[in-house]
Amino acid sequence: MKRMPFERPTQHYDERILHIDEQICELLKQRKEISNNNPGYPPFEYIEKWSISFGLYEDYLKEVFGAFRSEEFYKPVIEPQGFRKHIPILKSLEYGGFFYSLISVRQYSNASVITFNMDWDITRDHSTHSNIPIYFELYVGEEYDCRMDSGTSTSGHSSHNYVISPPLPDDISGMEFIFRKFKEPFENNLIGTEINEIILRAD
């Protein structure tokens, strides 16, 4: 998803806290490494205790630890440039009343883009699904960065675009496109349903 450039909110900075801010950055790095980049979120009783111990507002600390969980959102964004061609995939999977499909890969000079579709019969009862906000993360291999760029949803159909960088090879035979279900972006726990992954394999 596209982000607006961040503007410095004030020109003031107290240079006396420079060393403290460097220590904060160092501790954030240690926190990420020790937790294998999966720190979770502290129990509220811990936050309440820290609020009292350090004289900080409890709701402020809740926001701070919430922000710690969203580092992935700030990865540099690759904008596809230099369209080259379409590569057909034409793969689908039907499960649990939902029809998942991939039509093609759009190849650019600096990235690839795919559209993941989900269709369902609106006359059937999907109330068990409608109250669960589902976010799909795409995985195609350790060497690729995948991010959801945009999406739309209407009655009986949803469609989401994913940007993959670096670009996929023109020969994608045998590659697997794995869509993992999460309740929200940057969440590390898969939704506890019978099927957590939608796997579509290019022939």
Rank of each mutant, 00 (worst) to 15 (best):
Asp171Ala: 09
Arg69Thr: 15
Ile172Ser: 13
Lys62Ala: 13
Phe54Thr: 15
Ile89Lys: 00
Phe99Val: 03
Asp121Ala: 14
Asp149Tyr: 03
Thr123Glu: 14
Asp171Gln: 11
Glu63Arg: 10
Ser127Ile: 03
Phe182Asp: 12
Asp119Lys: 03
Leu138His: 10
Glu184Gln: 06
Val64Gln: 13
Ser109Trp: 07
Phe177Glu: 00
Ser159Met: 01
Phe177Gly: 02
Arg106Tyr: 04
Gln81Gly: 05
Ser101Trp: 01
Ile172Tyr: 15
Phe73Trp: 11
Glu176Thr: 04
Val163Pro: 05
Phe54Val: 06
Gly97Cys: 06
Gly97Pro: 03
Gly141Glu: 07
Phe83Asp: 10
Glu71Arg: 02
Arg124Ile: 11
Gly156Glu: 06
Arg180Gly: 08
Leu93Thr: 11
Pro169Asn: 15
Asn131Thr: 07
Lys75Ile: 05
Gly55Trp: 15
Ile172Asn: 08
Trp120Arg: 00
His129Glu: 05
Glu72Gly: 10
Trp120Glu: 04
Gly97Gln: 04
Arg106Asn: 05
Ser173Asn: 09
Pro166Phe: 03
Tyr139Asp: 09
Gly66Lys: 08
Ser155Asn: 02
Thr154His: 00
Pro169His: 06
Gly174Lys: 02
Ser104Gly: 00
Ser158Leu: 05
Arg106Lys: 15
Phe136Ile: 02
Asp170Met: 06
Tyr135Gln: 05
Pro133Asn: 15
Ala67Asn: 13
His157Gln: 13
Glu184Ser: 06
Leu90His: 14
Ser150Asp: 03
Ile178Asn: 14
Val77Lys: 12
Leu56Glu: 10
Glu142Cys: 08
His86Leu: 11
Pro133Cys: 12
Gly97Val: 01
Arg106Gln: 07
Arg124Trp: 03
Ala111His: 04
Val140Ser: 15
Asp170Tyr: 10
Tyr139Cys: 08
Arg84Cys: 15
Ser104Arg: 15
Tyr135Ala: 05
Leu56His: 09
Thr128Val: 03
Val113Gln: 14
Ile52Ala: 10
Leu61Tyr: 10
Asn131Trp: 02
Asn131Leu: 11
Lys49Ala: 00
Tyr60Lys: 06
Met175Gln: 13
Val64Cys: 13
Phe99Thr: 04
Phe65Asn: 12
Ile89Pro: 00
Lys85Ile: 10
Pro169Gly: 13
Val105Glu: 00
Tyr74Val: 05
Ile103Gly: 06
Ser153Cys: 11
Gly82Glu: 13
Pro80Phe: 11
Glu58Trp: 10
Phe179Cys: 05
Tyr100Gln: 04
Ile87Ala: 07
Tyr95Ile: 05
Ile78Thr: 14
Gly174Ala: 01
Lys85Val: 06
Phe136Ser: 06
Met175Tyr: 13
Val105Lys: 00
